[in-house]
Write a protein that binds this DNA or RNA. Sequence first.
DNA 1: ACCCCCTTTGGGAGCGCTCCCAATACTCTG
DNA 2: CAGAGTATTGGGAGCGCTCCCAAAGGGGGT
Lengths: 345, 345
Amino acid sequence: MAAARVRSGGRPTLEEVAARAGVGRGTASRVINGSPRVSDATRQAVEAAVAELGYVPNRAARALAGNRTDAIALVVPEPETRFFAEPYFSAIVRGVGAALADTEMQLLLTLVGNDRERRRLAQYLTAHRVDGVLLVAVHADDPLPELLEQLGMPCVISGARHAAETLPSVDSDNFEGARAAVEHLVSRGRRQVATITGRLEVYGAQRRLDGYRAAVAAAGLAPDERLIAPADFTEEGGAGAMRDLLARRPGLDAVFVASDVMAAGARQVLREADRRIPEDVALVGFDDSVVARHMHPALTSVRQPIEEMGRRMAQLLLDEIAGRAPGDERPSVVLPTELVVRDSS
Amino acid sequence: MAAARVRSGGRPTLEEVAARAGVGRGTASRVINGSPRVSDATRQAVEAAVAELGYVPNRAARALAGNRTDAIALVVPEPETRFFAEPYFSAIVRGVGAALADTEMQLLLTLVGNDRERRRLAQYLTAHRVDGVLLVAVHADDPLPELLEQLGMPCVISGARHAAETLPSVDSDNFEGARAAVEHLVSRGRRQVATITGRLEVYGAQRRLDGYRAAVAAAGLAPDERLIAPADFTEEGGAGAMRDLLARRPGLDAVFVASDVMAAGARQVLREADRRIPEDVALVGFDDSVVARHMHPALTSVRQPIEEMGRRMAQLLLDEIAGRAPGDERPSVVLPTELVVRDSS
DNA sequence: ACCCCCTTTGGGAGCGCTCCCAATACTCTG
DNA sequence: CAGAGTATTGGGAGCGCTCCCAAAGGGGGT
């Protein structure tokens, strides 16, 4: 019934498939790995044997013999609470998952918390336990990307770390998203458009500020540094920045906030100051998170195609692993954003 | 300098560590795996060699030789959008990650979308590519748990599928959470407390309804089936159910909604009907999601310790893998919920 | 001093697969 | 029809580790 040498409850091995198909182990391996150097008849015989036996290759053996793992790691710095918030984390994961769906690649999730875990991570990667790494929310001063580069470990990051990013990266068009948001406010007749920024060490936050400035200039409005309030991506930070703005420029009639969460903080302050939204002050956020949809009034926000970003990151990484021709420049993808207009503007 | 046989750029092997420490391969292995049958002197020699060489065991080789993988899979049914929403997904992942942090276990994330992927998953698991499986958001009629059981694959699920759950499971106390929520409403003087339920095929939704009923009875209020409106965990469903309730029982003065998202839908309908919250109608949700915090007025909600659930699931699974003594009953954990009172009640 | 037993150690035998070389079977030239 | 390729094929040699057996070393009892 079953193949000759069946260990109790054991899964069929390549050897058994080969025997069943009446071919050698090497040939069976070739068929399974889609090598073209196999005759049609042989291929069919092997495929039949695979189907009959329900053969599934043993990953560990493959990895050991082939010196690869067919797995990539998604590395998430856990302290980065912002990343874990909607919509980032799940959307990225879905995108990555989608890109990997018809691949043999497995997705390893690695949360990096404290320094100890960080060191362990370096070991993991050093030990070549994965074929490539997806890095999200990396800071400009994070040594990890360089380490990976030295190890020759393929790696893709989300969000360029600075203008001269050298690693393959996927980003949304922060500049254009911010520019469009501010342009929208101006088109609605707003004349004193303020902005609350994220931490400006984060390149994306800087780009959003750049976009704001560009739109203000394009609209022929007088640039005013006192309409710019830096914050830190938190709700409290957003509230604090809003208070500063109100104190400095009580006449402002619109605020472009670099994240929805900060916008929630700002809205709270505006409500306390009895400014109506959008009548007195128009508000636009960034991220199109669930917060935006449920805020009252519903928040106009800049949507980033996060799932698509995940998908592209994974694709880029697979390309990287497959090996780009030397000399190819580092691919970097910038995806368009979309302004979702709701009631706050 | 380095050990004798060093392949170009290769990682040190156990053999090399053993040589460096002046012991045999078997002994080195024992030290690395923490076997007690090694003399102190030898142990120290090996540990020194490991440190000097920066040795990290090769997972693939280990898996192949030891017939285990040191990896568990978190299986997420992707169609279950509800699960992907805040706060579930990221919180579960964090919890699982925390439990695994000082373990050698890796976390594999497996999104299961369509049927094709579902079959692939069965293969994965059949091929023993993981040591255990964490299943979230399983439906009562999902064949996967039984399949795993047959394969002898350790498995833990989140949320019992029915009263007679046989698999190890971790759940929050849905009954008690709902009961406390309704008790809270009653204690605030509400007398016509309605409820909007989730899909009642979901056991947790049923339990919340049971809790509602228990609290109503305990308060000595007349049970009234027309105060119960079934929905489906979606915002639209919540809105529809609210409309029904308002039509049937215009005099209601409180609603316990089995999820925050549905509560958002209900609130919308209440606003359109010019019912003030909480003056006219008090509202309590479930999940304590970001929606609850940002709703206006902020929504009172039942918080589930989701991260803790992830942690316990992982611990349970590790125990399962380590092997429970036969005869031990299936461990199942029920964690307490917490009522977070805000402005809506 | 001898024997027995327990502790510690070394290393062979795989685990299942890929890589690659040598062998075989065909096919095409001239 | 010989010679030279060219397309297929089989299977040895590992990949690095765990398991396990047999050997070696030590200690105590008699």
